[in-house]
């Protein structure tokens, strides 16, 4: 029973982190038809900027905010100057975002070095609770809460606001959105940057969980997010939420019961889903 609760919390916390990446990735894919291969780099920048500010100011909140803001700007820069030039050309989109991924990952190594940097959790989140013999790590609960809040926030944004309406409409008919007098390119930049900011937040929260950040963390987490998007159905927000939870829980269970299978489990899951539902669990037809 104890182990069950621990695994549940671990899995949910892990899922929340993956969700921060996967949701942005999925919405960008749905609205613009772009697979953003810079997502891992944006995650990485979020992590490093957080660590950088956190070590300087000793303020966890400032670090997280700084990461979100700077990575948001970085995302807007990527969209405005590179991705927007190749809309409609899928191979070029993949190639150009891959190129940016290479450059900006290497810039991380240039600025902060190639060796991992350690980072502690803030004192007020570093503790544990013991409830009925189960040790609960506060930081993991914090991650679950953040993930939940963000999920609710995105859901509200998509279903209740004008921005959400434009996004949902743009996924289906970007040309018609324009013909109604709405500058969809502005929304493209905004959504891309917001997705980036979510990845940046993911990176910032990831570093204290693992206790360190290194330049390989970006790609690793990007792969997880890709698997989630494929499993959940490309462009589906609900799918990315469900997929993240599922992958997080499965990851926790496999890590406990069969650690040697940790690597293959995700891919096996992905292959199974594709075998039975090629469009993903919450398949939403993406153009092209």
């Amino acid at each position: 029973m104890d182990i069950f609760v621990t695994l549940l919390i671990n899995g949910l916390a892990e899922g929340a982190l993956i969700f921060l990446m996967a949701s942005g990735l999925s919405i960008i894919l749905g609205l613009m038809g772009v697979v953003n291969f810079t997502h891992g780099t944006l995650f990485l920048w979020g992590g490093y900027i957080f660590v950088w500010i956190f070590t300087f100011t000793n303020s966890f909140i400032l670090g997280v905010l700084g990461a979100i803001i700077i990575v948001f700007a970085l995302g807007a820069f990527f969209e405005k100057f590179f991705v927007s030039r190749v809309y409609g050309n899928v191979p070029a989109q993949i190639l150009i975002t891959l190129g940016l991924q290479v450059i900006f990952t290497d810039l991380v190594r240039l600025f902060w070095g190639a060796t991992p940097i350690t980072v502690a959790r803030p004192s007020y989140l570093a503790g544990t609770w013991t409830i009925g013999g189960v040790t609960i790590v506060q930081y993991r609960i914090f991650l679950i809460v953040v993930g939940l809040l963000i999920a609710l926030g995105i859901h509200k944004l998509l279903s209740k606001t004008k921005i959400g309406m434009v996004i949902r409409a743009g996924v289906q008919r970007p040309d018609m959105v324009q013909a109604l007098g709405i500058n969809i390119k502005l929304y493209f930049t905004l959504v891309f940057a917001a997705g980036a900011a979510l990845a940046g937040l993911g990176g910032a929260l990831y570093a204290p969980l693992v206790g360190s950040i290194s330049s390989t963390a970006g790609l690793h987490n990007q792969v997880l997010a890709f698997i989630v998007v494929v499993i959940g159905g490309m462009g589906s927000f609900i799918g990315s939420a469900a997929g993240s939870l599922f992958l997080g829980l499965m990851g926790a269970a496999v890590a406990w019961y069969a650690p040697s299978l940790a690597v293959v489990a995700n891919v096996t899951l992905m292959a199974l889903v594709l075998a039975f539902k090629p469009d993903g669990l919450f398949g939403l037809a993406v153009k092209k």
């Binding site: 309406m165 949902r168 409409a169 996924v171 289906q172 008919r173 040309d175 018609m176 013909a179």
Partner: peptide, 11 residues
């Protein structure tokens, strides 16, 4: 008003 209406299904 386009030929295929251009209505947003998900809205």
């Amino acid at each position: 008003v386009p030929e295929d209406y251009g209505v947003f299904d998900q809205l």
